[in-house]
Amino acid sequence: MQTTFQRRRWLGLATVALAANAAPTWAQAQSFPNKSITLIVPFPAGGSTDRHMRLLAELAGKQLGQPVIVDNKPGAGGTLGPGTMARTAKPDGYTISQYPMSMLRMAHMQKTAWHPLTDFSYIIGVSGYTFGFTVRGDSPYKSFNDYIAAARKSPGAVDYGSTGAGTSPHLLMEELAENAKVKFNHVPFKGNADLQQALLGGHVSAQSDATGWDKYVDGGQMRLLLTFGEKRTQRWPEVPTAKELGYGVVSTSPYGIVGPKGMDPAVAQRLHDAFKKAMDDPRHAELMSQLNQDAWYRSGADYAQWAKEAFAKDKLLIERLGLMAK
């Protein structure tokens, strides 16, 4: 009887201790958020990613009852912002980041202070890009095959800019170059806005990028020679895809929102729900149409599983292109 009584007493104390430890976490989730949230955008202001994230931040902030403030942290092909967050931010939900696909590639290409799968809490998958290849409106390249012909004539001399080494706009062009058996001169930039100005200023002859160039193409300052989707776009149906021209490259580079590892699941779910409602807002659908992007919704769990599979798949691509870290 004494042994049974002592066992019950210790079980009761253990239950109280567990409840006490769980209480702060539950209380934190219930009160979240009680101040503004920072959303890191790892590209400069003014590009397509920035335009998208700023609207989502505004709409999600209304759902959360607190402002979501965009903090542009460009650099390292879109990995500087999320990488810094992983090392320095508390996993309390008040610092989150847009997560470009370059995060899943950079760790294969060089040594990083973070791991793209284990150092992040995946919150929600959001969208993917429409990538295109553009030149200035007065460029001598009237078609993408004109550009390829020039590259064949002068190997390594014909240049193009991208949003950074290891980003999708860079890797899809390197894959295309391998398939076409040509060599380009790659010029990396910090982000869309810098790249657009470099092309318009004549500092590079072409660019591979997402649809930050849309207004310049529509305005005649740039000419769109190629897109990289599975099929032609509705907005520019006269422009061929890399696939139909026989170059064998299709890319949309999905992205989403993450936090540091160790986030309270209830806080992550609160953020997920707010951003999901933001995605469902008609204003978001209107911007998606302007950017010629499709929604790519994934729950946190599905997004994490997709990232795991993409990380393994991209390792094979980077090995094939000879870009693996030594």
Results as ranks from 00 to 15, higher is better:
L59Y: 04
L287M: 14
K183S: 14
K326V: 06
Q66L: 02
L200P: 01
G262H: 07
S48D: 10
F131I: 04
P188H: 09
P82M: 05
Y147L: 10
G46Y: 09
Q207H: 07
A304P: 07
S208H: 08
L172I: 12
W213Y: 15
L55N: 04
P24L: 12
M106L: 08
F5E: 05
P100W: 03
R298D: 07
K35Y: 04
A307C: 14
A325F: 05
G300H: 05
L245F: 09
L291A: 04
Q290R: 06
D119N: 09
F131G: 00
P254Y: 04
D218R: 15
Q63R: 06
R320C: 08
G220D: 13
P44S: 05
I96G: 04
F311Y: 15
G164P: 01
D264G: 03
L59T: 04
V126W: 09
E230D: 14
A57N: 05
V249T: 02
Q110V: 10
G322T: 05
M222E: 15
R54Y: 04
Y141F: 14
G246Y: 11
N192P: 00
R320D: 10
A157L: 10
G78K: 08
Q207E: 08
M53L: 14
D281G: 02
P44G: 06
A278H: 05
T233C: 02
L39I: 08
G93D: 08
V239N: 07
K35H: 09
F228G: 03
L176A: 08
N292D: 15
A19R: 09
P100S: 13
A76N: 12
R283A: 15
K190T: 13
F228K: 01
R87V: 10
D294F: 01
L11Q: 12
R87D: 11
P140W: 05
A295H: 08
G191Q: 02
V267I: 15
P240G: 04
V126H: 03
D218A: 15
H108E: 00
P44A: 03
L59K: 02
P155W: 01
A177D: 12
W26V: 12
V217A: 14
G61P: 11
N192A: 13
G164W: 00
Q293N: 10
L171G: 02
T112C: 12
Y94I: 07
V258F: 06
M279R: 11
L316Y: 09
W306V: 04
P265V: 06
A76R: 06
Q6D: 13
Y160P: 01
A193S: 13
K183I: 07
V204P: 00
K153P: 10
L171R: 04
K181I: 06
A285H: 14
P140V: 01
S31C: 04
T15S: 12
H170V: 06
H52K: 01
Q110Y: 10
M263K: 00
A23E: 00
W10E: 04
K276I: 00
L323N: 03
V135H: 00
E178T: 09
G322S: 10
L316M: 11
E58G: 12
L18S: 13
G12L: 02
S168P: 09
L104R: 10
L56Y: 04
S102C: 06
F32K: 09
S97T: 10
R7D: 14
S48G: 05
P282S: 01
L323M: 05
G78W: 11
K243S: 13
L225N: 02
T227V: 12
P260H: 03
R235T: 06
D273K: 11
W296T: 03
K142Y: 11
N292H: 11
F275T: 08
Q221W: 02
I69H: 09
